[in-house]
Design a protein around this nucleic acid. Structure first.
Length: 567
RNA sequence: UGGGGAGUGGUCUAAUGGUAGGACAACGGUUUCUGGUACCGUCAGGUGAGGGUUCAAAUCCUUCCUCCCCAACCA
């Protein structure tokens, strides 16, 4: 019962490259990709796209994928994040071949750096940070060579070793690649390879006081692992010449196995009504706008998980959005579609009343109560059945009653007859209100002949409502979620406007008095259900025995709101 | 005004010189004890714009326009 799309589909541009490499025998038929997160934040749906791409590609071509933590900046990274990243990749359904850390390669990188110095391809520069910036020029002004650019390799080597030995203060000197200060590509204006940073590293501890920069470390790590295709996002496109440069300097072939890995860039995922940048996500968490990284409103993998998404649905989503090079913003509605599509066939049905309205069946005695047997899935009988008690006092949803029935209203209203799912037909005879004029109770009569759900006379009843027995129902908390932002592109903030004014104030609605059918009392955290007529829900870890908490993953499609909107 | 990318219905994506197709969304209908699902149908782009090559152009050439990325000792 796979939900993965299996229809033959034309290859996207990265698949074409991989296929062309296979046909040409470039890597001897080998495909090895890598997923290289920096352990400085939680993974989000955008990472999921990259994970699915990298692991999916390898799988399709009989290859494998390494998980590599890109931990070259100890001041920003932490083990807390590596654990969550591992968990999230696994949850998505992928197994990595090797688990590596860029820091595993620090000794190798150091040796290669010494080699490059010896070859006159790198030099130690004593300029300050501000001076380096100034010498680098800008888009319109070519850079000027550092006064240390032509320092003798022997001198640079000596200095570099002393940098490593801890003789110099943080920021006092850096190692730079000697490329082209006049390049139109700023990345090639003698980029930094190493900076001195006395920071405790989560893996190497205090063994190093200098750390390599991304551009140097990344390609070297890829080459060392014999990665065949190094896939990253568009903003690294003009880093590619640098990526290649560092590896190409191994002219004697003493350091890397050939052929060298190839960097390929694709467009990162953006989603409507949410933000994806680590900075914004971190802000949401730190300022308490959401409850944490796994708040069900967050686009993080752990947030989606807590929200009730399945790994299959996230993978299907990644497949559907596709892979290309144009900047893209996927419709959040597509994600809703993917999870509905998955849960539609696998979530057992249950009855749950979100906003209870009491209904008393006036012509039914307490001793007339009966059991109703209901299928767990209307189209899949293998999912079995369960029973629910039908009694004189019930709850239905407030949303299913209108004192003044609008046009095409099939639900309950004074004098109207509806079906209570699986049980019988009832007619509303009387409406009881409190002092404030709020409807608090409905007095109805039932047609005993309709027991089971249909009247023997064959009369048609269009409305079918969900219900629970008042005395048997389990009280529960239900959390309803809406998009975090009220604007499609939350990054589109007007001058002088705080982006937080774009937050959707109704992104979380907590219902504290929902009533569930009895069988739901045994539900365990993570279990998913369809509450009939309302949506898909998952048991939240906040649940306590006797006091379950449910999250709405996504609502059912609701054509009534459209009908009513049209008048 | 430097360098690097990208422009196909509302959104995403295909078509690799030969009928612009699919998915989501939207709209309408059939079925239905979930206003769900399923099924059927409709709408919607002449492919950023102009010029050229060709029997034939989204695809090749050319000029222009628009959008995105780059001036961290971040990744």
């Amino acid at each position: 019962m796979s939900h993965e799309p299996t229809e033959p589909r034309s290859l996207h541009f990265i698949e074409e490259i991989v296929e062309a490499d296979r046909l040409s025998g470039k890597h001897g038929g080998r495909v090895l990709t890598r997923f290289p997160p920096e352990p400085n934040g939680y993974l989000h749906i955008g990472h999921a796209k990259s994970i699915c791409l990298n692991f999916g590609l390898a799988k399709a071509w009989g290859g494998a994928t390494n998980l590599r933590f890109d931990d070259t900046n100890p001041v920003k990274e932490d083990v807390e994040y590596v654990d969550s990243i591992r968990e999230d990749v696994q949850w998505l359904g992928f197994d990595w071949k090797g688990e590596f850390y860029a820091s595993d390669y620090f000794p190798f990188m150091y040796d290669y750096a010494e080699y490059l110095i010896g070859q006159g391809k790198a030099y130690v520069c004593d300029l300050s940070e501000a001076e380096i910036r100034e010498y680098r020029g800008n888009f319109h002004v070519p850079g000027r060579p550092s006064p240390f650019r032509d320092r003798a390799p022997e001198e640079s080597l000596d200095l570099f070793r002393r940098m490593r030995a801890g003789e110099f203060a943080d920021g006092a000197r850096v190692l730079r690649a000697k490329i082209d200060m006049h390049s139109g590509n700023m990345n090639l204006r003698d980029p930094l390879m190493y900076r001195i940073r006395r920071a405790h590293h989560h893996r190497t501890g205090d063994a190093w006081c200098l750390y390599p920069m991304y551009d140097y470390a990344h390609g070297v790590s890829d080459a060392l692992e014999t990665i065949t295709h190094s896939i990253c996002t568009l903003e690294f496109e003009d880093h590619r010449p640098l990526y290649d440069w560092f590896l190409d300097q191994d002219t004697e072939g003493k350091f890397f196995q050939r052929p060298l890995p190839r960097q390929i860039e694709f467009a990162r995922l953006n989603l409507t009504y949410t933000v994806m940048s680590k900075r914004r996500l971190l802000q949401l968490v730190q300022e308490g706008i959401v409850r944490g990284w796994d708040d069900p409103r967050m686009p993080t993998i752990c947030g989606l998980r807590r929200r009730g998404f399945t790994p299959e649905s996230v993978r299907a989503f990644a497949e559907r959005v596709g892979v290309a090079k144009r900047d893209m913003v996927a419709d959040a509605g597509l994600l809703d579609f993917c999870i509905r599509e998955d849960l539609e066939r696998r979530a057992p049905r249950r009855m749950a009343v979100l906003r209870p309205l009491k209904v008393v069946i006036t012509n039914m005695g307490d001793n007339e109560a009966f059991e109703v047997e209901l299928p767990n899935h209307p189209e899949d009988t293998t999912m079995g059945t369960r029973t629910m008690p039908f009694t004189r006092e019930l709850f239905i949803d407030h949303d299913d009653f209108r004192e003044e029935a609008p046009k095409k209203w099939f639900r309950l209203a004074p004098g109207a007859e509806v079906r209570l799912r699986g049980a019988c037909l009832v007619t509303c005879q009387e409406v009881l209100k409190d002092a404030a004029g709020q409807v608090v109770e409905l007095r109805c009569t039932w047609d005993p002949a309709s027991r089971g759900g249909n009247a023997p006379d064959g009369r048609k009843v269009k409305g079918t409502l969900h219900w629970v027995s008042a005395v048997h129902a389990i009280p529960a908390e239900v959390r309803l979620y809406e998009p975090l932002f009220s604007q499609e592109d939350p990054m589109d903030v007007a001058e002088g406007q705080d982006w937080k004014t774009l937050l959707n104030p109704g992104s979380l609605e907590t219902l504290t008095d929902a009533r569930l059918e009895p069988s739901l009392g045994a539900a365990l955290p993570g279990e998913r259900f369809q509450f009939e007529r309302t949506g898909y829900f998952v048991v939240d870890p906040d649940s306590a025995t006797g006091k379950p908490v449910f999250n709405r993953t996504v609502g059912l499609k609701d054509s009534w709101v459209k009908i009513e909107a049209k008048g």
